[in-house]
Design a protein around this nucleic acid. Structure first.
Lengths: 321, 321
DNA sequence: TTGTACGCGTTATCAG
DNA sequence: CTGATAACGCGTACAA
């Protein structure tokens, strides 16, 4: 590999002069500087990241950590993050899985955006204590080195629940996410609060895990105990889609017998017929804001926690009772 | 940050002893080794990646480069890659965008898997010439440091075309991908070959770009010039979905008036009604194979180019004429 | 077990 | 005011 040493030799100067020239320091004549730059280009010189990182103690790379790569959901989110970090001269890498957790303490990245259930709160707090900067998008974590950019889950779940009630429904199933999911817990709490304010609502909870299969299973159970029109709030769209899928194999019709609403407004939800009612928010904005907050945190600015607002998307999957 | 120096001081030994102990070298007494490990754990020691990379001239990280993060498509593919690299002690990072191209020559990663149109062939060949190891999944590139793991586009496009012909169709539209897409060109070529073997086929080409909007536009045009049942081969599912979408706003019915087949078998394709006919392949296997090939290449093994086989998924989006 | 020379840039200090 | 010398940063691994 070509290093500054090679350039220095070829240019007949010292390595420090090369370094200064490459970094645009005014300590070098324009003439020598030009010569050095020309040689660098000619030799396809690219500075070795390890050497530079070692000295500068920064990598200008931000890591985004995801529970898995599968979410149809992540595209816009990551796009938003990338725009956010690039704007400040950082690069974004996307990681998943326990093995990649080390990238942070190894100082391979300057900070991390967490949307990844494989991190425990304790682990993150340990990182924060060691001085690493974090933005969390999937939990409530209080630490000077951690900023939160969270969805307004409570508002969303409240909107969804109120919509079902407004449409005349009085028997309500909720299909939850995994018990350890922050989003699920927040949404569930809001549902309970909303339902609690209305008398005479029959409320049934089914435990899910945010995967399609859980929606199918829940659909099966609801079909079995069916005795009249019911409303179902799946706490994410993926499960709602699973339920859709299952119900399509039965005689029950979504929007007539079983009234369905989800959360996230993922792409497929726009293609179901009837259209799945859901809760929408800008995934791109969410990602961008998270990355901007992280960069501020790294720069030493102090930042407040942020909240992403959500809106209701009506759909014929919920009919008037 | 805590370094081996801190550990050495606390343990009352030299830094080299610490290094040996941490690396499990037999050159250190079990006793001292145990003491050192205990101190390391106590201090939350994690080796600095930059320093280690600098010396070892490897990072044990593989980069996967994508044109963008949006493909609903990438989930399984990346999962496959991750499994493949983790198995050999490597880590996977996912990158997108021109700025991240530098990660390779900077030696931030030990090799790259390319599925990214923002890399030109020249750029990749330059990297290969400089000794970097690459696997390409989206082009035909011949170089000792480059391995190809490609879809069997020709088989897929032939299967699709023959299916349409078998179902009795004789007027065939093809909606292409971008002109510079390798997959699009290969698929198109196979279509032409297949069509060429059958007399009396009316064949019309519409230029697309693999995005949903291109499918909508093409659908609009086909609807305008409609004079009787036609078959349409969208060279990827995304465009087929776009066309579906548009046709749903018209009186034309997919599978009766306009017969549609795609390529990729993305998730949404399973939710259209009638089901979109398409070409399927294991995205997970594709990703895993690509990563395995790259790791072999890095290890210096010599590897042959690989091909991923495809199958036809029939669907009622194509009816018998 | 330990001293030490690396790897490759960065930058403070010093000489011309 | 230009440019060279040298001391880092932090692990690794050879020689002693």
């Amino acid at each position: 590999m070509v290093s500054i040493k090679d350039i220095a030799r070829k240019a007949g100067v010292s390595i420090s002069t090369v370094s200064y020239a490459l970094n645009g320091s005014p300590k070098v004549t324009d003439e020598t500087s030009a010569k050095i730059l020309a040689i660098a280009k000619e030799l396809n010189y690219v500075p070795n990241a390890a050497a530079r990182n070692l000295k500068k103690r920064e990598t200008k790379i931000i890591g985004a950590f995801l529970t898995d790569f599968s979410g149809a959901f992540y595209g816009e989110l990551l796009q938003g993050m990338k725009e956010g970090v690039n704007r400040s001269g950082y690069d974004l890498i996307v990681c998943s899985g326990k093995q990649s957790h080390l990238l942070l303490p190894q100082r391979m990245i300057d900070g991390a955006i967490i949307l990844d259930a494989t991190f425990s709160n304790e682990e993150l707090l340990k990182f924060a204590d060691l001085g690493h900067k974090l933005v969390v998008m999937d939990r409530d974590l209080d630490h000077p080195n951690v900023n939160q950019v969270l969805l307004d889950n409570k508002a969303g779940a409240t909107l969804a629940t109120e919509y079902l009630i407004e449409m005349g429904h009085r028997k309500l199933y909720v299909v939850t996410g995994p018990k350890d999911s922050f989003d699920s817990r927040q949404r569930l709490q809001a549902v309970k609060q909303t339902v609690g304010r209305i008398p005479d609502i029959e409320y049934i909870e089914i435990e899910g895990d945010f995967n399609k299969s859980a929606g199918e299973l829940a659909g099966k159970r609801i079909a079995q105990e069916y005795s009249g029109p019911v409303a179902v709030f799946c706490l994410n769209d993926e499960m709602a889609i699973g339920m859709y899928d299952y119900l399509a194999t039965t005689d029950f019709r979504v929007g007539r017998d079983i009234h369905l609403i989800g959360f996230d407004n993922i792409e497929v939800s726009g293609y179901t017929k009837p259209r799945l009612a859901t809760i929408d928010y800008s995934k791109r904005k969410w990602g961008m804001l998270a990355s901007e907050q992280l960069i501020k945190l790294i720069a030493g600015d102090d930042v407040d926690h942020e909240r992403i607002y959500v809106t209701l998307v009506k759909g014929d999957s919920v009919g008037q009772l």
